[in-house]
Amino acid sequence: MVQAAEGERRSTTVPRFDAAVEKGLAYLRQERTAGTHGGEQVLAAYAMYKCGVAKTDGLIQKALAEAAGRSAGPRYQPVGSYDHIYGAGVDAMLMADIDKEKYVPNLQVIANYVQSVQRSNGSWSDTPTTAGDISMSQYAVLALWACQRAGCVISPECVERAAEPTADSGPTTT
């Protein structure tokens, strides 16, 4: 078993599920992560951490540095234009779960960014021509939730718009 920060990872109590988790962890550790962009590394690191890999693990530390670097300035610097909300979501979840006190300034930068790109109808999307994207909206809310758990300031109006989108915010993807 992989050692977690607080001790040994717990079993799922189903041997084939435990074996699947081990196989997934082995896949995430492959060198394939060396050529991926930061958002993919952060997602892999977050999955590893949730499986019980210690936060001191080299891959997790590299991903934390990537996430912290994108959120170190006055404005969040997403990896790409399409996946900016996905990246913000996984960056926020990783930093909030590993050390919310340490990363609260970074998390506030992410919260500010996510709130600033919310559409007037309560959704989030990658282009101005779409009504809203369900998946991106989910990651935006996950980002805001992670930031809120760390004590960041989240606009109640932003949350209300997300919870009660207007009629023109129909989904573009599922």
Rank of each mutant, 00 (worst) to 15 (best):
V117N: 01
D168G: 07
A150G: 03
N121V: 06
P78R: 00
D97W: 01
P105Y: 01
R75V: 15
L59I: 07
A44H: 01
A150W: 05
R29V: 05
G73W: 05
K23S: 15
T172A: 07
A19S: 14
K55L: 09
A150E: 04
S123Q: 10
G7S: 07
E164D: 08
T36R: 14
D133L: 07
L28Y: 10
G39C: 08
G7P: 05
D99T: 03
P15R: 10
A26N: 12
S120L: 10
T56E: 15
D91S: 08
A44V: 03
W124N: 01
A26Q: 15
A68S: 14
T127S: 15
V159M: 10
M136S: 03
Y103K: 01
G80S: 14
S125Q: 09
S116K: 04
C51F: 10
D83P: 02
T127H: 11
D18C: 05
A167R: 08
V2G: 00
A20R: 12
Q148Y: 08
I85S: 00
M1E: 12
E8V: 11
R161L: 11
H84G: 11
F17I: 15
V79K: 01
E157R: 09
L142H: 05
D126W: 12
D126V: 09
V42W: 00
D99N: 13
D18L: 03
T174P: 01
N106R: 01
D168C: 04
C147M: 03
E101R: 06
Q61K: 15
I134N: 02
